[in-house]
Structures are given as structure tokens and as C-alpha cells.
Amino acid sequence: MSLISVLIWLPIVVAVSLGAGWLFRQTLIRLVNAPTAKFLRTAPLTASFGMLTITIYVTCAVFAPLIAPFGESEILSASFEPWAAPYILGTDNLGRDVFTRLVYGARNTVGIAFLITALAFVAGTLLGIYSALKGGIIDQVVGRLIDVLMAIPSLIFSLLMLTIFGTSVISLVLVIATIDSTRVFRLARSVALNIVQLDYIEAAKLRGESTVYLITREILPNATAPLAAEFGLRFCFVFLMISSLSFLGLGLQPPTADWGSMVRDNAELISFGDITPLIPAGAIAILTIAVNFVVDWLLHRASGLKD
């Protein structure tokens, strides 16, 4: 693996991905009804590629046991078998099929990442908008507490919490969701602060609308764009957080396959030019790019800019 071969392969990979995206968009347009098709036509190739990728990942995640040729934790062979049938991507250090682990990894990693991000967004957004809406002492108290949590380096905070509460999946989800929700809170609050000053919110308040109504019907719909952009990045940071935690010896329980730990497990091989750890790392990178391409497209549409 030299720099030059990377440079040669890169454009080819990009061209093929965009081509696949185009095919996927055209197929979708044929399959769906007219208004949706019209909407889809506005998708640039990058976004089409994003949608294709997300579809593939979700399929993998849902149908993992059907797609994967072997069992998730099944020990099949000696360590590090080469890339040849029946092990398309070879085997790992324990002799488990890498392709199988990758497919199950989609289920575990994407599932957990989605759960964490969703939790973080529900908690962070609601609390953020609520603080902005109420202001005063509530805003101050919540704001200080969030500040305290944000001021602790997130890795150290999770190290502390996971050591105290154990490393079960539930505590992992709750700890990372807590950390993420503070970032979401900050964003949601600042966006909401701008909105609550607007006249129509004043009007709704005077009408005597309930807080729940104000948050869900008046403020939230107008704050989706920045929140969606944040969602795209936060979602992917969860993988990295899990990976970093496994660097410090925490993370998901074995033998559960997850991409973050798969990168970590064989990471040292990269410094000898062995590309084994690049496969799960690539899986994370492609998903990150795909999600953000789609988010960019939606944001662009929402912004109302014509060009």
C-alpha cells in the first residue's frame, strides 16, 4: 500500500460509487409515486450515493443472520486466514470470519449508535428548548449543570462513569447519550433562543398555549435544520467514542462485533502496512460520509437557496 496506488485507486472508487448512486436514484424514481419521484430528482449524485449506502447498511443490520455466512462468534480457522473463499475478507486473530463480523457489526454498531443519538437528541432538544422558553432561574440551573458536564473531558467522564456503573450495554448507552445530550442541549437552546424572541411565539403564548404545544408545534419545526446537521455528525461520533473507549479497555462486551472495537483490535497492524483494520474503519467512514451527504442535501433544500 503506497501513497501512489492510493491516489490511483481513489478516483476510480469515487466514480464507481457515484455511478452506483445514479443507478440507485433512477431505480427508486421508477418505483415510487410521482411526487416522491419529483423530490428524488432534486437529489445530487452524492446524496443518491448516500441513500444507497444507508439502504445497504440498514439491510445488513436488519437481515444480518441471513446475510452473514457464519455465526457471529463462531471460531472457524487459524488466525488471519487470507482473503479467499469461504472467508471473503479473511479471518481475524481468533479465526472468526471478518465479513460475518462486519455484517453483525452493522447491526450492533448502527443499532447502538442510533439508540444513543436518538436518546441524546430527545433529551437534549427538549431540555434545551424548554430552558430557552422558560428562561430565568430554570434556564440558569439547567445551564450550569450542563456546563459542568461539558467542562469535563468526555473520555475521562465516561471512564469514570463506566468504572462506577459497570460496562454493560445499558450503562454504555446511557453514559454516551448523557455526554452527547449536553452538546445537543447547547445547540438546541441557542437555536430556540432566537426563535422564542419571534412574534409568533409571543402570540402563541398570549393565546395561552401549553408549554408542550409551544415546544412541539411552534419551536421544534423551525429548529429542525441545524439539529439535523448536528445529528449527522453526532451519529458518527458515537462509533468513534466506542472505539476510543476500547482503546482504554472499555467498550462493548465480547463477543459482540462492533466496528469501533474491530478497528482497535487490529489497529497496530496498520503501522506495518497491513490493511486489515482499514475495513471496519472504512465501514465507519463510508457511513459517516453517506449520512452527511443526505443531510447536506436536505439542508440545502430547507435553506431555500436556488443554486
Binding site: L94, L162, T167, L248, G249, L250
Partner: peptide, 25 residues
């Protein structure tokens, strides 16, 4: 890793081993 191997090889004897990954700390 060794625990994962043991969990697999124990299945043949009808023993179910759950590997609990503890913090290094």
C-alpha cells in the same frame, strides 16, 4: 480474546460461559 475462545470451546461440553469484559481500571 482468550475468554471468547473459551466460551466457544466450552459449548461442546454444554457449558455456557459469559465473558464479562471488566475495565482495566
Amino acid at each position: 480474546d482468550a475468554g471468547s475462545l473459551m466460551a466457544e470451546s466450552a459449548k461442546a461440553a454444554g457449558i455456557n460461559i459469559e465473558v464479562v469484559r471488566e475495565p482495566n481500571d
